[in-house]
Design a binder for these strands. Structure first.
Length: 435
RNA sequence: GGCGGGUUGCCCGAGUGGUCAAUGGGAGCGGACUGUAAAUCCGUCGGCACAGCCUACGAAGGUUCGAACCCUUCACCCGCCA
């Protein structure tokens, strides 16, 4: 039996020095005493945690930075703890916000936590060994605590003048103030660090650079209550070359990990459309591809930008990481079919069917609606938007421009008698199937 | 509790009785150019049964032939005072 020749995705390049690797990837913004951290990492298993608040029903591509960083630590022989913010999600982190968060009901948060936890579990190995990951939820130790205990045991250690000085708080004071509830966020996060230390000997917390204040607050609390010292490590806040936060699609929406919110196809397309100058950066941040290979891809992209080698690799790696290697081939086939540029009637039925599963699609029965209605329905546009697309010459039926706003697909338009490929602009494709 | 300021479309932000679906900027979308990239230029940018109609300027009432704009009450935010 011949071995399967398809490359094993995702690629996991071996790493000798975790800190050096993080630095090369552009994942090191600040650390507390770096030499001490390096010594601890070299001396044995270090338990590292990162927190994930349930701000939506799914994590998004941006959340992958800390999550994959946990995995990087695990691969380097350390124990990762992904922490779901069942309690902190209640409060809402004021960091980087100018107004109060909208409070969610406990039921909403609980439902979200279930979803988030399932996603956190996908990226780490939860074996019984010394580096097996531990899934934690800060509601576990926060919920049983009384308000009095909290104020006495935790609040006591927080000088208000220091809290006020923190960037996340002072920024809010400038822009209209914040509630006591929100200001308490840093106490909760600090308590998490201490609890994870007590329970699992966790001595390091990682997060975005905007979390620096919250993380060091935790270190302070750890020192005061446990007389223990820990480490903080933050990543630079990643933005693309246009200053957008990582993981925002061109449409402005988040690129989610949940396939029902962002399809594998959409994720792959998102990667393929990454700016040339961001592709290498993303490869470093969001994949485990090694140094030499990334350098080669950078060179290749600079030499033949139109081939988008880095973007393609990023797309393959990320889809494999998030949705599994099996999904990659399907998505590639769908993308090739829909963007092949050739005559669509040359495509075979199987390819079209595959595209149907990956790309936005629509099923019609009986009489076929007008092109405008199909676009609106299938791509989630308003009728006005769809009509406008036609008016502006941006609507295509089987790669032919649609000029008439009231056009209805003719019988001869159906590929293989049952498929239509509609497009709005260059990259929004819709496959329609009739039964 | 008192006084003052504020609440406009996805965001910022003009407008202060008719000419306002509401100036401008950003984001987004479409086109041209390309490589499903960037930059640039042009267009577009509430909804719909689309040469028209409907809904909108925090909420509810009122004045008026006519209100985002004037009045009243309410909600929320900010500042100062208690």
């Amino acid at each position: 039996m011949a071995r399967v020749t398809a490359p094993a995705l995702p690629t996991i390049a071996p790493v000798e020095d975790i800190l050096a690797d993080l630095e090369w990837r552009g994942l090191l913004a600040q650390t507390t005493d770096r030499d001490a951290l390096a010594r601890d990492l070299a001396a044995g298993v270090v338990t590292v945690y990162a927190g994930f608040d349930p701000t939506a029903d799914s994590l998004h591509v941006g959340s992958l930075v800390p999550l994959l960083a946990l995995r990087r630590f695990q691969l380097a022989g350390h124990r990762p703890i992904p922490l779901a913010g069942g309690a902190t999600g209640f409060i809402g982190d004021p960091t980087g916000r100018t107004t109060d968060r909208v409070m969610m009901t406990p039921e909403e948060i609980a439902a979200r936590i279930v979803l988030i936890k399932a996603q956190l579990e996908r990226f780490l190995s939860f074996d019984d060994g010394p580096t097996g990951a531990i899934l934690a939820d800060n509601l576990e130790w926060t919920a049983p605590m009384s308000a009095l205990d909290f104020l006495r045991d935790v609040g006591r250690h927080f000088p208000v003048n220091q809290m006020l000085a923190r960037e996340s708080v002072s920024a809010r004071l400038e822009s209209g103030g914040l509630s006591f509830t929100e200001m308490s966020y840093q106490l909760l996060q600090s308590l998490d660090f201490v609890e994870l230390y007590r329970r699992y000997g966790c001595t390091a917390q990682i997060g975005g650079n905007d979390q620096w204040g919250n993380i060091t607050a935790g270190l302070d609390l750890l020192r005061r209550t446990e007389r223990a010292s820990g480490h903080a490590l933050t990543f630079p806040l990643v933005t693309d070359s246009a200053g957008q936060k990582l993981g925002k699609s061109t449409g402005g929406g988040n690129v989610w990990l949940d396939p029902s919110m962002t399809s594998p196809y959409a994720l792959w397309q998102f990667c393929l459309n990454v700016d040339d100058q961001d592709a290498g950066t993303y490869l470093r941040l969001l994949t485990f591809v090694g140094r030499e290979e990334v350098a080669a891809l950078d060179t290749e992209t600079a030499a033949r930008p139109f081939a988008r080698a880095a973007q393609r690799r990023l797309a393959d790696e990320l889809v494999a990481l998030v949705h599994g290697a099996d999904e990659v081939a399907r998505v590639q086939a769908a993308s090739a079919a829909l963007f092949g540029g050739g005559a669509l009637d040359a495509l075979d039925e199987d390819t079209l069917r595959a595209a149907l599963a990956e790309a936005p699609s629509l099923r019609v029965e009986g009489e076929c609606p007008a092109v405008v209605d199909l676009l609106a329905e299938g791509l989630g546009l308003s009728k006005s938007d769809a009509r406008r697309a036609v008016k502006e010459g941006g609507a295509y039926l089987n790669n032919a421009k649609v000029v008439d706003e009231s056009a209805v697909p003719a019988d001869s338009d159906w590929l293989h008698g049952r498929f239509l490929v509609l497009r709005k602009g260059k990259r929004n494709v819709l496959v329609v199937e009739r039964s």
